[in-house]
Simulated scan of single mutants.
Amino acid sequence: MSAPDSLVPYPPADTVCPLCEAPQSQHVLHLVQRRRPCPETGQRPPADERDYLRCPECHLLYLAPSQRLDARAEQDIYDQHENDPADPRYRSFLAKLFTPMCERLAAGASGLDFGCGPGPALAQMFEEAGHPMALHDLYYHPNPAALTRQHDFIVSTEVIEHLYAPGEVFRQWLRCLKPGGLLGVMTQPASDDPEALRRWHYLRDPTHVCLFSPATFAWLARTYGLELEQVANDSVIFRVPQPA
């Protein structure tokens, strides 16, 4: 592990893992991103400096919680995303999870698209394949009622990396799944190499606060007694066991 070149102080509470709540996460990366000069004044704003820690228990890589953006700044970034349900390239991207999920679903199985965004393309794809869908997105489709009932499957694409309390949300997902239900998650996998992380495009987005690796997903499967399949480099499917 390479030593950070400089270190922005963060409080001891930041060393508590937001996924498994284990203490004593270790600092692994100090990231400095220089901002573009103001077009009107030509002055460059102060650099954006962030610190990332890794949990020794579940292997989650996460941004120091004290350095997170506020809700308004987060939504300003989300509003810049362009996810058009009619875009064939975006549909091809989502197919990495959509296709293996459909192969494992019974006809007419109903699901929940958690964190669907303003253009719920994946939900539309499932609807077209004969699977009724509910939507929930904190900013664009708030639907707390969808989280009070059970579903045959849940999908969450490019969402889990934004969650402040991923352990709490993961348990909520499991409560919302029927026995034998499927949970499909898409997110870019985090490397163990600090230098690779320094170059990783995923960390250019300050709303990416929790980064998962295959080891983290394996920990979740062991902890909650789930079956786990890696169906693409950036996609996994969990299955809730049937009662004995």
Rank of each mutant, 00 (worst) to 15 (best):
P241F: 07
A13C: 06
P65T: 10
T15F: 10
G181F: 10
Y140G: 07
D76G: 10
N83R: 07
L97T: 08
R239F: 02
F153C: 07
L228H: 05
E227D: 14
D234M: 01
K96R: 15
E168Y: 03
F126A: 14
G117I: 15
G117D: 04
L163H: 00
G115D: 03
H141M: 01
W219E: 11
L60Y: 12
E103N: 15
V159M: 09
N143C: 01
A64G: 10
V159N: 05
P18E: 11
T99E: 15
S92C: 10
P65H: 05
A121G: 14
P120N: 10
L97S: 06
P142L: 11
D113A: 00
T216E: 11
D70R: 05
C176S: 14
Q172E: 11
A123F: 04
F114W: 15
P45E: 08
L182Y: 11
D137W: 07
F153S: 06
N83L: 14
G108L: 04
R72A: 14
R149E: 14
E57F: 04
L177V: 07
D234W: 01
H141T: 03
P118E: 05
A73L: 13
Y139K: 09
V240C: 14
D5I: 06
L163V: 06
Q75L: 14
D234K: 06
R50E: 04
T41G: 07
P100L: 02
A13H: 05
R72T: 11
L122F: 15
W219Q: 08
A107Y: 10
D79T: 06
H136S: 02
P166N: 07
P118S: 11
A190C: 13
H151P: 03
E74H: 09
M133W: 02
S191R: 08
Y140H: 12
V16A: 12
E227S: 12
Q75M: 08
R198H: 07
Y90R: 04
P179D: 11
L94H: 13
P9V: 12
D192P: 05
G115P: 08
V240I: 15
